[in-house]
């Protein structure tokens, strides 16, 4: 079977692309390291500072994974928008449900 396709031509490694992937990996690793640093240095009393910083850093990491690893940043704008815009529903959902959680707490205790 394999012998039937001898005409396959292997192209050389795209160095710029690989370099970019390594760069993204280092970014992700560095951001994770920063998250650890914050988890152990910023005291729990600053609860909301911690939460907001963690969420921002998580979104930065998610951006790098989706845009570079999943290549969405280099797709057509219509494809980008059809994936990113529906996620706005999730943002909305977060706010109502967290609010509900607080309301349940108040009702119970």
């Amino acid at each position: 079977m394999e012998q039937q396709t001898p005409q396959v031509e292997v192209q050389p490694v795209n160095k710029a692309k690989v370099k970019n992937f390594i760069k993204v990996m280092l970014y992700l690793a560095a951001i994770t390291a920063v998250e650890f640093g914050i988890a152990f240095t910023v005291p729990h009393e600053h609860k909301w500072v911690r939460i907001i910083v963690f969420i921002v850093l998580t979104i930065v990491k998610a951006y790098y994974i989706v845009a570079e690893f999943m290549h969405l940043g280099h797709e057509k704008k219509s494809l980008k928008m059809s994936i990113v815009l529906p996620m706005l529903f999730v943002v909305f959902f977060i706010f109502i449900m967290i609010y509900q959680g607080g309301a349940i707490l108040e009702a119970l205790y």
């Binding site: 999730v90 959902f93 449900m97 967290i98 509900q100 959680g101 607080g102 349940i104």
Partner: peptide
């Protein structure tokens, strides 16, 4: 989000 809801309750 369910985790968030239950945690906050």
């Amino acid at each position: 989000i369910t985790y968030g809801l239950i945690r906050f309750s």
